[in-house]
Design a protein around this nucleic acid. Structure first.
Lengths: 255, 255
DNA sequence: ACACGAGTTGCAAATTATGGAACTTTTGGA
DNA sequence: TCCAAAAGTTCCATAATTTGCAACTCGTGT
C-alpha cells in the first residue's frame, strides 16, 4: 500500500459517527501495525491532512480538507444549477431535497434543503449510500450501459433492505425502467417510512452527472404532491439539460 | 519532499480562482519536474484526492475531500454555536456575518450568512486572509501571548493595505487593544469600503478558537447599528464561553 | 506535413516507508 | 498512590516507493 493509499484509507475512516481517530482506531480499521500508523498520522498532521484535537492524541480532519472540499463543491456549474432546482421544488412542496453524485458504488450527498414538513431526514451532505439501493444512485447508474453496470457490479453487495434490488438482473430491470420513465423512486428503502423521487442530469463537457432528489413520507404523500415533485424535478432537469447540452435527459414520459 | 508534502502542496494550489489544475500548472507552481508531477497527479487521481474533469487532462479536487471537509466543519460544537450567534446578529442587523478559524498565519472562513443589505462581500467560506491584517485574525492572535505572536511573526509579511499593522510592534499594540476591549475592528482593510467587527471565543477542551464577525459598509453604518453588532457578538460569545468554559472571553468592556 | 507543447514512460539511483521489537507515556483500577 | 495494561513512539535493517533525466507519445495549430 502506497502512502497515498494509506492516507486515503485513513480519511475514509472518518464519518459523522466517527469524527475523531486515534492510532489504535486506525490500526484496527486499516488494518496496519501501530508503528506504521503512528508515523502516518504524525506525517498527516504535519502536512495538514489532520489536526490534533487540543492536546490529546485524537485526530480529526484538517482545515485544508475543508478548503479543498469547498472548492470541489462550488466549482461545479451543474451542481449549482441542480441545487437551484431542488431548492425550488423543495420549497414548493415543503419536503426535503438534495443533490448527489456517484463515486464508484456509492452516492454522496452534496447539498441539502430541509423541508418545512415535520419529516426531517438527517442531512445527506457528505453521507454515502449504496448506489444500487437508492433512487438517486439508480438514476445515475441508469446513465451507464448494461455492460458498464455489469462490470461495476460483478456481484451485487448485500441489499440493505427488502425493497432494494436483490440481484444484478433485478437491478438491470430497474435501471431499464428508470431509463424509460426518466426518474427513479425508492420506498422504505434507505430510510424507514421515507420515499424518494430522483432525476439525473449531466454535463457532457465535464462528464459530471448529478441526481436531483426529493424525499417525503411514504404513508402520507398525496398523488398531487407526488406529481408536483416529479414534474418539478423533471422540468428542472430538462432546463439544465438544454443549457448544458446533455441530450441524455430521461424525460421521455410525463407519467 | 515527501509524498504527503507534495500532495498537500498540490491541494493548496487549488483556489476559487483556480479550480482545475494540469500537469504543467502544477510543475510550475510547486515547482517540480513534469515527470514527477505527471505521476503524482495520476496517483492522486487513483486514490481519490483529485478527479479528472471529463476526458480532459485537467484535474480538480475529488469528492473524498468534500466528505472529509464536511466532517471537519460539522464536528465542531464551537463552530456550530458561533454560527448560530453570527446568523442571529446578521439577521438582526441585516449585514453579512461569518465564522473563521486561524490556520498558521492565515484565517479561513468556515460559515457565512449573507446580509439583506445591498453590500454583499464574496463568500469567505474556504477563503484565506492574512491573520494580522484582518479583524477576525487579530481576535484570534490576541488569544496568544506576545511571545507566541513574536514567534509566529519573526517579521511581518507585507501589509496588504495601509490600514493594516505595518510592523510587529504595531501588531502587538493592536492585539493588546483587542484584549482590553474584547473585540477587533477593521476598516477599509480587507475589502474596500467595508468594515468589520469581530469577537473570538474558544473551547478549552478541544483548544479550538473561532472568530465571529459581521461586515458592513464603512461609510453608511450608524452608531446604533454598529453598537447592535458589537453587543450581539459580545453577548453571543459570552454565552458560548459560559457553556464551554472558555474563561478567556474578552468581554471586559461594554464600550 | 511538421513543429511545438503537453503529458507519459523507462530505468537506475535516491529517498522514504515499513514492521518487529524495545521503549515511553498515559490511563484506570485497586 | 501504585502498578499493570494499554496507548503511543522510536530504532533500525530491509523493503518499497519515488525521483529526475531523457526519450517517447499524443494532440494541436499553422
Amino acid at each position: 500500500m502506497t502512502t497515498l493509499a494509506s492516507v486515503a484509507a485513513v480519511l475514509r475512516c472518518f464519518s459523522e459517527e466517527r469524527t475523531e481517530l486515534t492510532v489504535t482506531d486506525v490500526a484496527a480499521l486499516l488494518p496496519a501495525p501501530k508503528s506504521t500508523v503512528s508515523r502516518l498520522l504524525r506525517a498527516m498532521r504535519d502536512t495538514g491532512f489532520i489536526e490534533s484535537v487540543g492536546e490529546t492524541k485524537r485526530y480529526r480532519p484538517g482545515v485544508m480538507l475543508f478548503e479543498a472540499g469547498h472548492i470541489y463543491r462550488h466549482a461545479s456549474t451543474l451542481v449549482e444549477r441542480a441545487d437551484e432546482v431542488v431548492k425550488a421544488v423543495s420549497a414548493q412542496v415543503g419536503h426535503s431535497g438534495y443533490v448527489s453524485v456517484r463515486d464508484g458504488l456509492d452516492v454522496v450527498g452534496l447539498t441539502y434543503h430541509a423541508g418545512s414538513h415535520v419529516l426531517r431526514v438527517a442531512t445527506p451532505i457528505g453521507r454515502r449510500l449504496a448506489a444500487f439501493a437508492s433512487a438517486t444512485g439508480r438514476t445515475l447508474l441508469a446513465r451507464l450501459s448494461d455492460e458498464e453496470v455489469r462490470r461495476l457490479y460483478p456481484t451485487l453487495p448485500t441489499p440493505p433492505s427488502p425493497n432494494a434490488p436483490q440481484t444484478v438482473e433485478e437491478l438491470l430491470v430497474r435501471l431499464s425502467q428508470v431509463r424509460r420513465e426518466g426518474f427513479a423512486e425508492s420506498n422504505d428503502e434507505a430510510n424507514r417510512g421515507v420515499a424518494a423521487i430522483a432525476v439525473a442530469v449531466g454535463d457532457p463537457e465535464t462528464r459530471e452527472a448529478v441526481s436531483l432528489c426529493v424525499t417525503f413520507p411514504a404513508a402520507t404523500i398525496t398523488p398531487g404532491e407526488r406529481n408536483a415533485i416529479l414534474q418539478g424535478l423533471l422540468a428542472g432537469a430538462k432546463r439544465i439539460s438544454a443549457i448544458l447540452g446533455d441530450g441524455r435527459n430521461h424525460n421521455t414520459k410525463t407519467n
